[in-house]
Simulated assay, not measured.
Amino acid sequence: MMCRVGSVVAPFCVYLADVWIYLPQLIVGILAFIIGVLTLLLPETLGRPLTTTLEEAEALGSQPSKKDSALGNKDAEDGLEMNHREAKA
């Protein structure tokens, strides 16, 4: 959805150059920086099975990472096995 909003708004950013020549580049640069920082807040998903429901996706950020506990490794393996069984069915 945000991609569509961006594609509608982007052509009008060119007209901001009439206000100040560097304004369009400044807006794009600031937004890219903010998006980069917000990306760091996403949970780590390396070695974890893909989520299939909204509840699993919400729980992904609240679970401890694999490095924090050995139980996390067991949970990730169980989830991976469960997804393999579901895929075969």
Rank of each mutant, 00 (worst) to 15 (best):
M2Y: 14
M2L: 15
M2E: 13
C3T: 06
C3E: 10
C3K: 15
R4H: 13
V5L: 15
V8R: 13
V9F: 00
V9W: 03
V9D: 05
A10I: 09
P11W: 12
F12K: 00
C13S: 02
V14P: 11
Y15I: 13
L16Y: 10
L16C: 04
V19T: 15
W20N: 14
I21P: 00
Y22V: 08
L26S: 11
L26K: 15
V28S: 12
G29H: 01
L31D: 04
L31E: 11
A32E: 03
F33Q: 05
G36Y: 05
V37F: 13
L38T: 08
T39A: 05
L40W: 03
L42G: 13
P43A: 08
P43G: 03
P43I: 09
T45A: 10
L46Y: 11
P49Y: 00
L50C: 04
L50G: 09
T53V: 01
T53D: 07
E56F: 11
E58M: 15
E58W: 14
A59G: 05
A59R: 04
A59M: 11
L60I: 01
G61M: 11
P64I: 03
P64V: 01
S65N: 04
K66R: 10
K66Y: 11
K66T: 01
K66W: 00
K66G: 02
D68S: 06
D68K: 06
S69C: 05
N73S: 08
N73K: 08
K74Q: 14
A76V: 03
M82A: 07
N83M: 02
N83Y: 03
H84I: 09
R85M: 08
A89P: 02
A89G: 03
